[in-house]
Nucleic acid binder design. Structure first.
Lengths: 114, 114
DNA sequence: CCCATAGTTCGGAAAATCGGAACTAGTGAA
DNA sequence: TTCACTAGTTCCGATTTTCCGAACTATGGG
C-alpha cells in the first residue's frame, strides 16, 4: 500500500470540502482531528461514540476527507496518522473551516459527538 | 399548492446547509439569489448558463435550498420569488455563508457561472 | 512462519440524484 | 366558462452514490 494521494492546495475544490463536511460523522471526525492536531485513527475513533461505525465505513470516510484535502494520512507502523490540513486550507479559503466547525459546534452543541 | 415549508432559524442544521451548497449548481443559484437579493427564478436561471438545467432538476434544487433554510420561496402570480435568508443564517451561524460564497468565488473564479 | 492488529477493497443491497413526461396553478383572452 | 399559455411540481424509471459485512493486504511481534 503505497502512500496515499493528497491533492495539492491549488487543486482543492469547495464543493468537495463542503460535501465531505456535510456528513455529520465525517464532520465530527474532522473536528476531532482538527482540534486535537492529530489522531491515529479509525479504531480509536470508532470506540468513542455510542454508535458503532463499521471500519469499512470509517475507511471510506477518511478517504473522502483525504481526497477533499482536509486531512493528511500517513502510515505509522500498523496504524494511521491523520492530521488536519487546516492551515493550508485556511490560506486558500480563508475562514471557511472555522466557520463550518463553529456552525457544528453551535448547532446541537454536543450533538456531533464521536 | 399552498405556501412552502420553511424551517425556522433554530431548526437549521449545518449538514443540510453544507449539503445544499456542496452542489456547484445549487451554490451558483444561491450565490445569485444572495448577491442579487431576489430572483424570480427557475426558467430565468435556466437560461443563464450555457448548460441547460432541466426544470425538474431546478425545481428540486430549489426545494433543497428551501429545506436547508437557505432561501425563502413565495409564489408571485405565476412565478416564484426566491430570496436568500442570509441575515437570519448569519445570525445563527456567523460567517458561514460569506466564507462559503467566498470560497466558491476564489476557486475557479468564474467557474461557478450560471 | 503464525498470529494479531489496523486498515483497504470487494460486492450487493439500500438510498439519493437526474431528467423526461405528465400534471397542477395562475393569468389572460375570447 | 373554456381555451391556451406559462411557471413550476410531481411521478417514476434509470443511473449513481452510499452503506457495511466479508474477504483481503500490510505491518509488527513472538
Amino acid at each position: 500500500m503505497r502512500p496515499f494521494f493528497h491533492p495539492s492546495i491549488e487543486d482543492l475544490r469547495p464543493e468537495a470540502i463542503l460535501h465531505a463536511l456535510s456528513d455529520p460523522d465525517r464532520a465530527a471526525i474532522f473536528a476531532r482531528i482538527a482540534t486535537q492536531g492529530c489522531v491515529g485513527s479509525c479504531s480509536r475513533l470508532a470506540a468513542l461514540g455510542e454508535r458503532v461505525i463499521p471500519k469499512s465505513s470509517l475507511s471510506s470516510h477518511f478517504k473522502v476527507l483525504r481526497e477533499a484535502g482536509l486531512v493528511r494520512s500517513e502510515r505509522q507502523g500498523v496504524e494511521m496518522r491523520n492530521s488536519a490540513r487546516c492551515a493550508e486550507i485556511d490560506q486558500r479559503f480563508p475562514g471557511l473551516l472555522p466557520a463550518i466547525l463553529n456552525a457544528y459546534a453551535m448547532s446541537g452543541g454536543g450533538d456531533v459527538k464521536l
